[in-house]
């Protein structure tokens, strides 16, 4: 159960998140900065609900918008080449 990988991009397990959150009694954002969960390639889009849920269980933190996990979701990821008009794909 504890071996479950929450953040696949950075390979952060539920155990690592649980230990960090318990040891430092920290917010979801601090867990992110300490473990790198949610800082990987997908930008936290995949694991953010899981991190929020884990933190809600461990520290009772309710996910809010005051100090969020810093995700600024775009509608879809766009490369700079597309933005600059050098590519259509």
């Amino acid at each position: 159960m504890e071996d479950i990988i929450i953040c696949r991009c950075e390979e952060v397990t539920l155990q690592h998140i649980t230990e960090t959150a318990t040891k430092y009694k920290c917010s979801a954002r601090e867990v992110k900065l300490r473990t790198r969960a949610g800082m990987g390639f997908c930008g936290g889009r995949t694991c953010r609900p899981a991190i929020d849920t884990a933190l809600a269980t461990i520290t009772g933190e309710t996910p809010g918008h005051d100090i969020p996990l810093k995700v600024s979701p775009p509608i879809r990821p766009v490369s700079l080449a597309v933005l600059g008009g050098k590519s259509n794909e």
Binding site: R8, C9, E11, F41, C42, R45, T46, R76, P77
Partner: peptide
């Protein structure tokens, strides 16, 4: 494979959301 640990990765979301399946295509990475 994961860049740091080397554990294998493949299709995960299959809708362009999770970037788990990124490969290099004609020298265009990611």
């Amino acid at each position: 494979v994961h860049e740091e640990s080397g554990s294998p990765r493949g299709i995960y979301c299959n809708i362009g959301h999770c970037f788990e399946c990124r490969v290099t295509v004609n020298n265009q990475s990611n």
